[in-house]
């Protein structure tokens, strides 16, 4: 396996003094899809948000984060994004008052680099034909699935090295879930590293290479998806999430 593109060594995150995440380490290689699963409040979103240096709250984050061997943990969000650490957050991913076309306009020109594919708007339309049909609609007029496509599309236009996805399947119809997840698998085949937070463990197992199970902010299990997929603790987290 090639050198990791994203590496964390001892990541700690707390909200108002309460420890939300304490992770010893995590590495994601190019072309690899790592799934992060666990019950509500296990720290999954906290993890991907901390990697992106982003939050709608006010967390305290400590611990080294490297992208291609370079420390990025002191960088502001936009700088990490420009370097290729791109997050599609949970919930609001579309600008509701802008058209799909305007939503799909990059704020910067990502520098061409090996392993950094910058998608054009037309390529996004090819990937998600539904978005082209709705290109003049406002973000607020889109369905949940279309918004997720828009969020992923905008992320790809920024030439991500690592794509961080927070529950892209939430609120989607089962058919849409498999379409989004299959798209991710196809993107990974082009060399993109993906860190995927997913409530829908059963669907996630189908597409991820490795699975990371979090429980109350700590890693309780990590391994290749086909090996740990049958672990009772994973099933428990899945049932817990489904309940």
């Amino acid at each position: 396996m090639s050198a990791p593109v994203l590496e964390l060594k001892g990541l700690q995150v707390s909200y108002a003094g309460n420890r939300a995440l304490d992770l010893a380490g995590l590495a994601v290689a190019p072309g690899e899809v790592v799934g992060v699963v666990g019950a509500n409040g296990a720290g999954k979103s906290t993890l991907v948000n901390a990697v992106a240096g982003w939050s709608r709250g006010a967390p305290r984050v400590a611990g080294p984060i490297t992208l291609d061997g370079e420390r990025v943990d002191a960088w502001p969000t936009h700088q990490r994004v420009r370097a290729g650490l791109v997050l599609v957050p949970e919930g609001r991913v579309a600008f509701g008052r802008m058209t799909v076309e305007d939503n799909l306009s990059a704020a910067f020109a990502a520098p061409p680099a090996p392993g950094r594919r910058v998608y054009s708007r037309d390529e996004i339309y090819e990937l998600f034909p539904r978005l082209e049909e709705r290109r003049l609609h406002l973000g607020a007029q889109l369905s949940g699935g279309e918004r997720q496509m828009l969020g992923i599309g905008r992320a790809l236009m920024m030439g991500p090295r690592v794509l961080l996805l927070d529950e892209p399947s939430i609120g989607l119809a089962p058919k849409m879930v498999s379409q989004v997840l299959e798209t991710l698998r196809a993107l990974a085949r082009t060399g993109l590293a993906i860190l995927l937070v997913e409530q829908n463990v059963r669907a996630a197992i189908e597409v991820v290479d490795r699975l990371l199970l979090l429980e109350r902010g700590r890693k309780v299990l990590e391994g290749p998806a086909r090996e740990v997929g049958d672990d009772p603790r994973i099933a428990e987290a899945y049932l817990g999430a489904a309940a």
Binding site: G96, F108, R154
Partner: peptide, 18 residues
């Protein structure tokens, strides 16, 4: 367009690299 993004949702605008 960038200004409108910031106006609507400054947090999301950061994730757009602004």
């Amino acid at each position: 367009r960038l200004v409108r993004m910031v106006a609507e949702d400054p947090k999301l605008a950061m994730l757009a690299g602004i």
